[in-house]
């Protein structure tokens, strides 16, 4: 029963959805504070290569090496985000162009490829460590739910905790309220004594950290190893940005969207394994086409305000010019 197409696709949907979830939660935090960061793809790739590097170089118990790798990926994602934060918050640069610049800088033809080549990584080098599935409570063989829920890697369970924490943080804490104020009305937040600059910096950096971890999901879990260029994550960073829009800037809906797109990413491989007679390009195009379709559905007839976009998203805050 657990090898039916549906169960396989759903189990893989969780696998492929996890990096999307991490990345979109990070982007959500940055955007809720009013900063659009289009550099997700670049931050993810850099996180991926750094995470892979740690697992190749550090000897030790598997669990501790992997934890270290995830921490390093997060930090490297945050370091990339710091460039964007400095340019857009302190130097008031255009957030869209700066984000694109970050993707070019850190992305598949930039720093991540550079670092990978300098360290001598190539696709033939097997990963020494990777996240295996954890059989939770011995329930992995449970029909249907077993492979989908109880036989996933630790990253998946971590992402659930992250989604819960981000949701609670934004909705139920004072800091979360302040973040939302900074994103909606920075001038009022400033008048209330909230440090707009500090809040934006912190959340852009945390967002970058999430993106770095999302990248590590690829190099340490989905396809352990390192391939320079566009093939490793293939636009997942951009899908994560789209996810934030059709999650209406809510953490719980990011979870739904991530698995929807995880399923779309997993479907081609599952169908190909069963020799379905469709040109693979049509299947591979599915997530991209569906991103467009869902975005259109979400944006039709809804104004920016109804969508739930932070009102000050993309606008630099300058105290003297409010």
């Amino acid at each position: 029963m657990n090898d039916t197409l549906l169960v396989i696709v759903l189990a893989d949907a969780v696998l492929y959805g996890t990096p999307l979830l991490f990345a979109s939660l990070g982007e959500l935090l940055a955007e809720r504070s009013g900063v659009l960061n289009l550099g997700v793809e670049g931050m993810m790739l850099f996180g991926a290569v750094v995470g892979f590097w740690v697992t190749q170089r550090v000897e030790g118990a598997s669990a501790s090496v992997l934890v270290l790798a995830i921490l390093a990926s997060g930090l490297s994602g945050a370091a990339m985000a710091a460039i964007h934060a400095f340019l857009t918050i302190t130097l008031r640069a255009n957030q869209i162009v700066s984000g694109l610049a970050l993707t070019i800088f850190a992305g598949g033809l930039g720093l991540s490829a550079y670092v990978g080549t300098e360290l001598g990584f190539s696709p033939d080098i097997p990963a020494k460590q990777h996240f295996g599935s954890v059989d939770v409570l011995g329930l992995a063989d449970l029909p249907v739910l077993g492979p989908i829920v109880f036989d996933q890697s630790a990253l998946v369970y971590a992402s659930w905790i992250a989604a819960l924490l981000v949701g609670l943080y934004l909705g139920r804490t004072r800091f979360g309220l302040n973040v939302r104020a900074v994103g909606e009305a920075p001038a009022s937040a400033d008048a209330m004594g909230i440090n707009v600059t500090l809040y934006r910096y912190v959340h852009v950096l945390i967002g970058g950290g999430f993106a770095g971890v999302a990248g590590a999901c690829y190099s340490l879990s989905i396809s352990p190893g390192w391939i320079a260029g566009d093939t490793l994550i293939g636009g997942a960073g951009w899908i994560a940005i789209a996810l934030v829009i059709f999650a209406f800037w809510r953490a719980e809906l990011c979870l739904v969207g991530a698995y929807l797109f995880g399923a779309l990413s997993a479907l081609p491989f599952a169908l190909q394994a069963r020799n379905v007679d469709v040109a693979p390009e049509f299947l591979y195009a599915l997530p991209y086409v569906m991103t467009i379709v869902v975005l259109v559905i979400v944006s039709t007839g809804l104004s920016k305000r109804h969508l739930g976009a932070p009102a000050a998203l993309g606008i630099p805050y300058v105290r003297e010019e409010r």
């Binding site: 460039i83 340019l87 130097l91 008031r92 640069a93 255009n94 162009v97 700066s98 610049a101 970050l102 070019i104 800088f105 850190a106 992305g107 598949g108 033809l109 930039g110 720093l111 991540s112 490829a113 550079y114 670092v115 990978g116 080549t117 300098e118 320079a228």
Partner: peptide, 25 residues
């Protein structure tokens, strides 16, 4: 001259140009 260096350079040039915009405005 490892691959990726060109992208890194382009990124840095773009970052600097963006930062420089501040001085124009």
């Amino acid at each position: 001259f490892p691959s990726g260096l060109v992208g890194v350079m382009q990124g840095i040039i773009l970052f600097c140009a963006l930062g420089g915009e501040l001085l124009l405005r």
